[in-house]
Design a protein around this nucleic acid. Sequence first.
DNA 1: GTGAAAGCGCTAACAG
DNA 2: CTGTTAGCGCTTTCAC
Lengths: 342, 342
Amino acid sequence: MSKITINVVAAKANVSKKTVSRVLNNEPNVSDETRKKVTDIAEDLGYKPNPLARGLASNQSFILALLYDNPNTNYINNIQTGALKICQDEEYHLLIHPCKASSKELVNNVAELISHSRLDGLVLTPPLSDFPELINFLLANKTPFVRIGATENLTCSSAVVSNDEQTSFEMTQYLISLGHTAIGFVKGHPQHNSAAERFLGFQRALKSANIKIHEQWVQQGDYTFNSGENCARQILTMAEKPSAIFCSNDYMAAGVLKVANQLEISVPHQLSVTGFDDAPISRHIWPTISTIQQPVEDMARQATELLIEKLKITDSKYATLSLESRLLKRESTSPPFKGKKS
Amino acid sequence: MSKITINVVAAKANVSKKTVSRVLNNEPNVSDETRKKVTDIAEDLGYKPNPLARGLASNQSFILALLYDNPNTNYINNIQTGALKICQDEEYHLLIHPCKASSKELVNNVAELISHSRLDGLVLTPPLSDFPELINFLLANKTPFVRIGATENLTCSSAVVSNDEQTSFEMTQYLISLGHTAIGFVKGHPQHNSAAERFLGFQRALKSANIKIHEQWVQQGDYTFNSGENCARQILTMAEKPSAIFCSNDYMAAGVLKVANQLEISVPHQLSVTGFDDAPISRHIWPTISTIQQPVEDMARQATELLIEKLKITDSKYATLSLESRLLKRESTSPPFKGKKS
DNA sequence: GTGAAAGCGCTAACAG
DNA sequence: CTGTTAGCGCTTTCAC
């Protein structure tokens, strides 16, 4: 039976339970000899400290929560996987907590979660990473947290970011290098700061190549497939069309592809399309979509690591880690087509 | 500060803490008057029972885990959402635990999880729901669990199932009703019992319509997009081709669509294609895929409910709930084309 | 270096 | 219907 408590380990080892506790928690002031003896006996007995008792006594729960409001299940899955890996290593529990950024109740809802679950810390994902009300509440409440993909206020917590502006700049440069000058843009969800960043990078690349933005070719999407379709219908039914469309994510790019197909505009011959995120659909659809791959799982891993570190060492400094993305050139991009459809 | 413990509630209410405890847990033997007084005061103070203390004292953790080994992130997301809803209502925590069904370590890994996290119960999803080693271990270990989409041994635990055999039968009937008699089939992952069920329903429908199965048109996939492509390449390069292909899920159907496009076989004019699961890609790809929609979130909700019920009432009976699926007719299916391509 | 005592916040098992 | 006494398994505090 799993009635192996610290007491039985202590008894078998002929030491006090405090000593066992010290060994378990890697505290100093235990002789190497004692430490080894206790370790061995604990191992032998298959002793597992009871997290509840531990938590009750030390006023911790060893529970973290992952907050998200994101319909991109693939992204969330990667985030979860990354966070989970560290949690398992560090013997933390991870609670997942989908929530609604648009809800007025968001802060209350999170407050409720924190107090009910006695959370030790939070991992925030976009767009929650940049929600002032939430951030301010957590700061005021002194709840430790770490942010993934944050763009603002980078000194108030640890964060792991991906520099979408720069990546977007490079993607745009790639299109320009192919020879495109008439480039449309489908914006992402206005609540996501990544959407703004991606647009900024796009603008900067055009400017530095001395290409003027054609405002009508810039449409507001919201990261969904449907919004991609709608924007594409706007752009591709104009008399003057761009030769390329930069979409702020792959779902929207897929929507653009669908509309292009309906309008019998051949991709990439008559129209180049790019996405962002390397979602599965970018590989499954045809033509496959040129896109940006971000180390999402890694970002979550490192973020969670930063959080736990902060939990262990209260006075550690906040860190901001920036991870590199990769440009994946696939079938949806080519030099612009001159002349008639072949 | 959240130093509001049961003691302060008891003091304010002028009762013993045991009475407060009784009220909190809805135990009998408290006068309505006392109950109301305690409830009000607790509310006033914003008192939240400490789950750790509660767990330690009552030898429960109020933690459930959701086990899965499934690359379909949309499915997993729905399952999570459903399970989470009940957990929040019932004040349970939900741990997510991706694992590898193929690993020899699976049982050890789960055993480790159970003992480390002091789990109260488990929610199993396919293909884990039908893993004898795992089931036997949990049974032997007396760990409560519930299964989603189980097909075997339905009396050893509660389960929520979806009768894929029947649904698959109906989908096949639909194809037959359109006039198809030359129907191919792409099987799902051999480790998933759903794959076998879906094939059985297909076979039964053909048999009852007196249509012989053309063995070469039956290919073994594994629920991935790539496997769909491979199977399609087999089937669609034969001299004699079917006029319809039933794919055991939407990803494989999407793969088939891609290959059909490459081979310039027009869907649905020259080939009807059906999927299963109503994955997002079935709506995003063109033509949109006729498929089966299962109430996945609901299944998870009800399963979790059954588990928690069992936890509360130890001697409650095991239940098996069967939920209905829906056939969604979309663009990828039509009567078979007679004559030349238009 | 080690241990004894106290207590985290709650529920169990009884007694009244 | 209500209260008392223990004690869950661990960490904390402080003494040795």
